[in-house]
Design a protein around this nucleic acid. Structure first.
Lengths: 220, 220
DNA sequence: AAACGTTTGAGCAATATTGCACAAATTCTG
DNA sequence: CAGAATTTGTGCAATATTGCTCAAACGTTT
């Protein structure tokens, strides 16, 4: 088998394609071309085909792609043909918001427990979950077979929580804020930093005014 | 002046560098090398120098960079030597969490008003702000000179809100969730899609197990 | 069943981004 | 002050990613 290097951007776009396709499917569309997908999500048709080509041949020449089939293939690639138990550490504003976020459940992510070490928060109910003390992480991870953790604690606590989760067998982490966490090789970490996103906006607004001759690359 | 194309990844990294440098500054560090920055944030030293080189020469050969100065230069590049008034539309869980998010205020983003069109939410207090009806967007934008809007409404409402904000002169938008919004050329839009981030994790967990020979590119 | 229009998949070209290596500039040391 | 040790800034090489083009495959029409 060919050894390929799949760009992370491709994985992100697959996620986007799949949700666009699900919308089409709901509207009764059965077949779609790379052109229509491209128009729908704002990329080039060649990009769509290239992205899919990393993983196989899913279309029919002269016809296009079967919508239901393609959804299934992409979800399979993304590992979403099953449900994933997820734990969340940090029952603050952001953690609470994420617990209520429908988008996670829609894609098969199931937040099975919320943890905090603040006595004021422990015992509180968020959605249908009770906030647990972090000491109970091992027990919950074992019970549900959790492999994914979301960390929404303040920056200074992020590394400590990451260490705790890794020690308990968590293999993938989603962190928030500017913290850079150190984890063993086999653990996958991705980060969401909302300030960066706003600063990309201000860069465009402010810097390009001062230097109109600079060009800037969109995307992202 | 040279006309350059600044990669968005460079802008993101500048944001990261600046926060790392602020930590150093707080600890009393006055001088830093590209090597130390690189170690601190997990990139290559050459990358750090290249990123800075897009905008000028900020270091001294044989010495490194003056921490305070470099912070100032980067903040200037990112347009953060001033405060930015921001409006937020969508007073749900996520919107509420973002209003309370310290990271925004720390970087000079000032959420001056929160809007919703849900009568149950209008009038509610979030932090020290009262939730306003969307009809009052024009007034607030004019009063504060707002150029940036954050949209945290459900997917189906995102395009409508974007249209409203653009009509009222907003030039940059941060949206959440899978919605793809259409805006005029001059408006800058960036999107945060939390499901994508989780799906990058599941892709790694699931797909690579099935196809161990595939390699995968980190970053992002 | 042949001709035509469509659309995929893939090779190749074009761009973009990152990494390497080293001259130039600076400080330090003796 | 000459030589050694750093460390930046940058040209060039190496990779990665995206875009272009077209043969091959399919359906439709006549």
């Amino acid at each position: 088998m060919k050894v390929l290097r799949v760009p992370e951007a491709t994985v992100s776009r697959l996620s986007i394609y799949s949700r666009f396709l699900e919308r089409l499917d709901k509207n009764g569309v059965t077949t779609v071309s790379s052109n229509e997908i491209a128009k729908g999500v704002g990329v080039s048709p060649a990009q769509v085909r290239k992205d899919l080509a990393y993983f196989g041949e899913f279309g029919t020449r002269g016809v296009g792609y079967n919508v239901k089939d393609l959804i299934h293939y992409i979800l399979k690639i993304l590992g979403l043909t099953r449900s994933w138990p997820v734990i969340l550490v940090g029952a603050g504003n952001l953690g609470t918001a994420l617990c209520a976020y429908r988008g996670f459940r829609d894609r098969g992510f199931n937040i099975v427990a919320v943890f905090d070490n603040d006595l004021l928060k422990i015992g509180k109910r968020i959605q249908d979950l009770e906030v647990l003390p972090v000491e109970r992480v091992p027990e919950v991870v074992a019970e549900y077979g959790v492999r994914i953790g979301i960390i929404t604690v303040p920056q200074s606590g992020t590394q400590g929580v990451a260490d705790l989760l890794v020690k308990n067998g968590i293999e993938a982490l989603l962190t928030f804020g500017p913290a850079v966490v150190q984890v063993p090789e086999h653990v996958i970490v991705r980060n969401v930093d909302l300030s960066i996103k706003l600063e990309i906006l201000t860069f465009n607004l402010a810097f390009r005014e001062l230097h109109p001759s600079y060009l800037f690359e969109p995307k992202g």
